[in-house]
Design a binder for these strands. Structure first.
Length: 745
DNA sequence: GGTTTGAAACTTTTT
DNA sequence: GTTTCAAACC
């Protein structure tokens, strides 16, 4: 009995076909990670391949970490030298070693989206481009797609030919790259682009990596873009032992440059390729799979696959159309409470998936009131918070004064009395002398017209220099951070503020310090650059953690690769999902197919139970929208659905109502009670206080989350009371007595 | 140089 | 409904 006996025939074929190119088409939940890990183990244990010669590439750190752990558990000794990482960290590792051959310093910094935006703003200003008409974002996305397609500024200019708009974009692109190089910085796309450039330019480097990575595996292959494909192609060219695993039906990153033809045409690129299909699903029930199959079958030009399972039919899929987004959130909240109380589920078994991050708010509000533990993924990344970025900018400046952006960010944070006027003088001086911003700061004494600001700049420079000296004399990173917080007065300023917001910022800073400490503990040779690098490449979903008991809220995009026993697909409305952008696009056929794949990803996240919800009306950016049920719901075979679809003549209804209908409906919605009692028995079980309240208007009460406050109003509605409380800290809130569990004090 | 206020934009998805 | 940005004011 070997470990490979537990695999099915197709999976075994994927594991044992080690030589030559292999394409594994792996449907959702078909055990592709198992195949990849077993394949690595097979190579090491049965074929005697040195782990050092194996590379596995994934898209997220989380996926990489999991794979690495699973391999380590099976192989034990020696597996740590196997290279399991993301595309981006692979490239950083290579570039840190060799990028000097392209004229960059090996201590380059990595710019995130924020950095890119402020850089672009500078450039537009300098080139006299009105950002009211031509958005920075537009230029950035043009440049990003160019890099994904491996088009450099020169080539871009050639292709622009006589097109005035494109010529301007070419000019911006060129300038953007110039400044990046001057700052010794790379953006995310550069990481891939420059590695490919390095490989093409330097055969010696390419050859050394080809020799090293004799066996290459790529996960989520359907999401690779042209540049990533080229990177892999170059590496695999010599030994051709390339195994890619993916599912064309789960390709959802076209907007980010993913090229679906990388997977659809794999056999054209590698004619000798072995193709293996994994269609047996180990995750979901047959009903869920049939629903997913029914939806995805509407796409054309896909590799034909039909998922099946041994797991049995399972529950029907629930569908509920609610009056509003509020009711939708309420419905889901109650359903979760019910399933946790008597359905044998934990909070962590439940996930709410939605199309846009903005949808999380309503659920969050409901969860706070109902005391349901939850965690929202996506949205504002931890490392994008202001205080964190400020402190990282200090670290970057200490690490590498070449990064003008970081220096400019903190030169007057906290306030040192160095204002915009003085900073502009320094910027001009730096440009004239062709030196970095920080270099110019060091020469502040020689810059004309600075006046008393020069002295302030001097003490800032002295501070940075002294911090550098500390690093050189062996200070730990966490101690350095503490020192920065104290000496600059950053922490003191926040403490003095005393607001809730400041309190939250301080907590985030504490969290940053513990992340620094954790880094120092796990790394053998912790360095400042090393920490900054690790931080630059983390995604929010990497923080996903199965051990805590909370409901997970995330976008459909973030949910890829995850699974939950009980899944809610919320906001299934035409115009929201599929998004209005995709419906009205010039290329709506293609874009709708991508949205449909997203729906397929969402449905297949569910293991046991799937609930689909939609709202008749929804506030979007302050406007009321009336959407019909998502076309994707209509594509699910009717007999699989337990709820009722309330949309008899969907095809006849306009997506947007006329102003008159709109007004009428808005009135009707407003007139309806805020949260109707849909299921009386269930409601009563949630209602712990029945008809009597221990407090009345004017009483002081205590809420478990919001603290103390005064009761302003109590309104009876149905069996419950709607209580308005003016909290000392958070202001006035309305809540239902049965959920809020207010205590009189 | 710093603070306050009001308008305007934003929302599709992110390594 | 929220956040960001600029202009006006102190």
């Amino acid at each position: 009995m070997s470990i490979y006996d537990s695999l099915n025939e197709q999976q075994q074929k994927g594991v044992f076909t080690t030589e030559g190119p292999v394409l594994i088409l792996a449907g959702a939940g078909s055990g592709k990670t198992r195949v990849l890990t077993h394949r690595a183990v097979y190579l090491i244990e049965e074929l005697g391949v040195n782990p050092y010669n194996i590379m596995a590439i994934t898209f997220t750190n989380k996926a990489a970490g999991e794979m690495k752990e699973r391999i380590e558990n099976m192989v034990g000794y020696g597996s740590e030298s196997i290279w399991v990482t993301t595309f981006h960290s692979t490239c950083v590792r290579i570039l840190r070693r060799y990028i000097d051959r392209l004229g960059y310093g090996t201590n380059f910094t990595i710019y995130d989206a924020d950095d890119q935006k402020s850089l672009m703003k500078d450039i537009c200003k300098r080139l006299g481009i009105d950002t009211k008409i031509h958005k920075e974002r537009m230029f950035l996305s043009v440049i990003s797609s160019a890099k994904d397609e491996l088009i450099d500024p020169v080539e871009f200019e050639t292709r622009a030919a006589g097109d005035y708009n494109k010529r301007r974009q070419a000019e911006v692109y060129k300038e953007y790259q110039r400044v990046l190089r001057q700052n010794n910085a790379l953006d995310f796309d550069d990481l891939i682009f420059k590695t490919v450039e390095l490989f093409k330019q330097d055969k010696e480097v390419l050859n050394s990596y080809q020799e090293r990575f004799k066996y290459i595996m790529v996960d989520e292959y359907q999401d690779t873009n042209t540049a990533q494909f080229e990177l892999i192609r170059l590496l695999a060219m010599k030994y051709k032992n390339l195994c890619v695993v993916g599912d064309d039906d789960q390709s959802i990153y076209k907007f980010r440059g993913a090229n679906i033809y990388n997977i659809l045409n794999f056999e054209k690129h590698f004619p000798e390729a072995t193709v293996i299909k994994l269609e047996q699903n180990y995750r979901s029930t047959q009903n869920i799979l049939d629903a997913a199959n029914g939806v995805i079958a509407n796409n054309v030009g896909r590799k034909d696959k039909v998922l099946w399972t041994d797991n049995g039919e399972g529950d029907k899929i629930c569908f509920e159309q609610l009056e509003s987004g509020y009711e939708e959130a309420d419905y889901v909240t109650r359903d979760i409470l019910r399933k946790v109380r008597n359905g044998g589920y934990n909070y962590k078994d439940c996930a709410i998936l939605y199309r846009t991050n903005a949808q999380s708010r309503l659920f969050e509000e409901r969860f706070i009131v109902s005391n349901i533990p939850y965690k929202i993924f996506g949205g504002v990344n931890f490392y994008s918070r202001k205080e964190i970025k400020d402190l990282l900018a200090y670290l970057k400046t200490i690490d590498n004064g070449q990064d003008d952006l970081a220096v400019k960010r903190i030169i007057n944070v906290p306030k040192r009395g160095i204002g915009a006027a003085s900073i502009n003088k320094v910027i001009n001086y730096a440009m004239e002398q062709d030196i970095s911003f920080y270099h110019a700061l060091r020469m502040a004494g020689e810059i004309p017209g600075l006046g008393k600001a020069a002295e302030k700049i001097r003490s800032f420079v002295l501070f940075i220099q002294s911090m550098r000296a500390r690093i050189d004399s062996g200070y730990s990173l966490s101690r350095l951070m503490q020192e920065i917080l104290e000496t600059t007065g950053y922490l003191a300023e926040l403490e003095a503020e005393g607001t809730d917001e400041a309190e939250e910022r301080i907590q985030n800073i504490d969290e940053l310090i513990s992340k620094i400490t954790a880094y120092e503990e796990e790394e053998e040779q912790p360095t400042l650059s090393g920490f900054l690098e690790e931080v630059a490449l983390v995604a929010d979903i990497d923080e996903f953690d199965e051990t805590n008991d909370y409901v997970a809220l995330m976008t459909l995009h973030s949910a890829k690769g995850l699974e939950f026993p009980n899944v809610y697909l919320a906001g299934m409305e035409d115009g929201l999902f599929p998004s209005y952008m995709s419906i009205s696009s010039d290329d709506s056929l293609t874009e709708l197919e991508e949205e449909r794949r997203l729906a397929y990803v969402g449905i297949t996240r569910a293991k046991e139970h799937l609930t689909i919800t939609a709202a008749r009306s929804r506030m979007i950016r302050g406007d009321m929208h009336f959407n019909r049920v998502s076309r994707f719901v209509m594509e699910i075979p009717k007999h699989l659905i337990g709820g009722e679809i309330y949309e008899p003549k969907a095809a006849e209804r306009p997506i947007q109502d006329t102003p008159f209908q709109k007004a009428k409906k808005a009135f009707r919605t407003a007139a309806a009670s805020y949260i109707p009692v849909t299921n009386q028995r269930e409601f009563e079980s949630a209602n712990t206080q029945k008809n009597s309240l221990e407090y009345q208007v004017g009483d002081r009460v205590r809420h478990i989350k919001f603290g103390d406050g005064e009761v302003m109003a109590i309104v009876a509605g149905g069996r419950d009371y709607e209580v308005t409380v003016d909290f000392d800290k958070t202001g006035t809130r309305k809540m239902f007595a049965s959920f809020a569990k207010l205590k009189k004090i």
